[in-house]
Design a protein around this nucleic acid. Sequence first.
DNA 1: CTACGTGCAAAAATTTTGCTTACCG
DNA 2: CGGTAAGCAAAATTTTTGCACGTAG
Lengths: 163, 163
Amino acid sequence: MTLKVQAAESRIEQLCIEHGLKMTGQRRVIARVLSEADDHPDVEELYRRALVLDSRISVATVYRTVRLLEEKGILERRDFGGGRARYEATEHGRHHYHLIDVDNGKVIEFEDPEHEAFMMKVADRLGFEFVSMRLELFGKKRQPASKAPGKTTPRSRRKGDQT
Amino acid sequence: MTLKVQAAESRIEQLCIEHGLKMTGQRRVIARVLSEADDHPDVEELYRRALVLDSRISVATVYRTVRLLEEKGILERRDFGGGRARYEATEHGRHHYHLIDVDNGKVIEFEDPEHEAFMMKVADRLGFEFVSMRLELFGKKRQPASKAPGKTTPRSRRKGDQT
DNA sequence: CTACGTGCAAAAATTTTGCTTACCG
DNA sequence: CGGTAAGCAAAATTTTTGCACGTAG
């Protein structure tokens, strides 16, 4: 019996093809990494994950690729306040939003089905065709039941932010 | 009769004082620039405007100040896709949102009175105390009644973005 | 075959910082 | 006065690019 050796195209690769992009080995790898990510990796993280699958990829290519995919509407860029852009796949018709814990940078996702529809209506009313949106909510965890606040903010380029 | 020679504190300066910040000449200038801005200037633009009022201000100070004010919740940082952070004064209880024209970077503001209340409820439901939020809508101007699309995107660090 | 993609390293752009001096409270 | 802020220039980061070469279609 023959094995199917990873023949399946990743979801993002599929989208790339639909958009008529030339599929190079690197793009396939990056597409796969993106397809499998269920968090919000920045370029450096994408690069790291891509390297595992294919060691001859350069950061430059990752940058070029995310920019391309963003322009095509396949990816969306986020800014959760860490100074570096984070990416996630676009989910048409089913947007989710982000609640960022300002104390530790953790990101919680939530949905609101009516919200996107409402935004589309807003765009329409203003004479625009909806392209995409971003909604970020910043908050502090409630429940001050114990310790002191604690200024836990190491003031420097934080490499390892969460989710 | 004596003239009131700019004795009035700017709104932002007022807030700084309430937050117990030491008011230096530079901060006063930057606070004033921010108070008078009705757009979304980036650091470089703030620096330019501050220089007009006081020539001995350095960019470093502008960076340090916006960071400080953002931490205090007096300012909010925005990302309209130009690669540089933009700032605007926080308006508690009356958030407005941004619709960015993806073709030319122009920003249109709009409001939705119920929206912030709704977001606060969401935060609360998730166990968080609302700190702030951001909502950005990206769209293309409708009405393709004339010319061709036109790839009007000079691909490089664009210095002069709109609004 | 040819246009487009990639690697590499250098360049550009943005933001942060170390250190000394200035100045608010 | 004492501690914080500012200036200046250097450093750190993040992102883009020029060029020679590789490759998808």
